[in-house]
Amino acid sequence: MTCTITAFERSPDGGKGLARDTRVRWALEEAGQPYQVRLVSFAGMKEPAHLALHPFGQIPTYEEGDLALFETGAIVFHIAERHAGLLPEEANARARAIAWMFAALNTVEPPILDLVTVRIIEGDKPWSRERLPLVVDRIRARLDQLSARLGDADWLDGAFSAGDLLMVSVLLRLRMSGILDDYPTLAAYVARGEARPAYARAFAAQLAVNAPVTG
């Protein structure tokens, strides 16, 4: 059965691959699974029909038969569990890959999202200038640790997994800040993720939705 995911009708990132539906698209592409996309406007995300799928009025959502899921991490985990290619078969390796999924979303991403908040949402607040260095220091502390753990390996724990998919997706949010440039090991890690054909297909699909309309 072909699943249906939701995505922004017009993404705030303009198609740069930062919207979270890209992570789900990437997982489905890695797993070789077809999918349909239902585009949702910002107003539509607050309507009852969408809130029945996502109680917090966000995207993406995932529907397959009588199953409806929200939260990107949960959706990617479901895809990885149901289809080969995103989690190792060996039990301990599988558990470690899942741990990296949680690490990407719970440990590495929060300070990166804080950077977006302090620069854009709170940029006009009197405290933002003082808060910014603290947020950057938190990010750098995590990147120092992650870079040391990755070392000269291609991926976080053996073969590419859903843990890498989410970690690369999280780190991509740092590109515009320039912080990632100071970590060549991690920049190369992200580039390897972007070079995967499945990522290229997912990125192109998200970009196509947001391509400028020409005459």
Rank of each mutant, 00 (worst) to 15 (best):
A159E: 14
A68I: 05
N210S: 06
V37C: 01
A204N: 06
R149W: 13
G15N: 05
D21P: 13
G32T: 06
P88T: 12
Y183L: 06
K16P: 11
E109V: 14
V209Y: 10
L180M: 09
T117E: 14
V213A: 10
V108L: 09
L134V: 15
A91I: 12
D13M: 13
R138Y: 07
N106I: 07
F102I: 15
G57I: 02
L86M: 11
F8R: 02
L156G: 05
D182Y: 06
A162Q: 03
T185N: 02
R175G: 13
I5P: 00
I75N: 01
A153P: 14
A187W: 09
S177Q: 10
G215D: 14
Q206V: 12
A84F: 15
A211M: 11
R192Y: 07
I79V: 07
D21L: 02
A52L: 11
V37H: 00
R96P: 11
L166S: 06
L115P: 02
R196E: 03
R23M: 13
M1H: 11
V135L: 13
R142H: 11
R25I: 07
L53Y: 10
A202Q: 04
P88R: 09
V170D: 02
T185I: 11
D144T: 15
G17K: 04
F8Q: 03
W100Y: 15
I179A: 05
V170R: 03
D182N: 10
L87R: 04
A68G: 10
V76N: 01
V37S: 00
R201W: 09
T6K: 00
A27H: 01
F160K: 03
G44L: 01
A211L: 15
G163C: 13
T185H: 02
V209E: 06
A7W: 08
L69W: 00
D152R: 10
A208I: 09
D157Y: 14
R149K: 14
D164E: 03
P184Y: 07
A205P: 03
G73S: 05
A195D: 06
R192Q: 04
F56R: 04
I5S: 00
I79E: 00
W26D: 00
L39M: 07
I112W: 04
A31G: 08
M176Q: 12
I59R: 00
S177K: 11
M101T: 01
A153E: 10
W100P: 09
D124V: 12
N210L: 09
L105Y: 13
Q36Y: 08
C3H: 02
A141N: 12
A27F: 01
E30W: 07
G123N: 06
A52F: 12
I75T: 00
V209P: 04
P197T: 06
A31D: 02
F70H: 00
D144G: 13
A91F: 13
A205I: 02
F56L: 08
A49G: 08
D181W: 08
D137T: 14
A141E: 11
D124A: 14
R173K: 12
P184I: 07
A162Y: 04
A187L: 14
E109A: 13
E9K: 12
E30G: 07
L174E: 01
R175C: 15
P34N: 10
G17D: 03
I59L: 01
T117M: 12
V170A: 10
A52Y: 11
A52S: 13
G65L: 05
G57N: 05
L146Q: 03
I121E: 14
R10C: 08
R10T: 14
R38K: 06
T2D: 08
L186W: 05
G57F: 04
V136A: 08
L166N: 02
D124Q: 13
Y183N: 02
R173C: 12
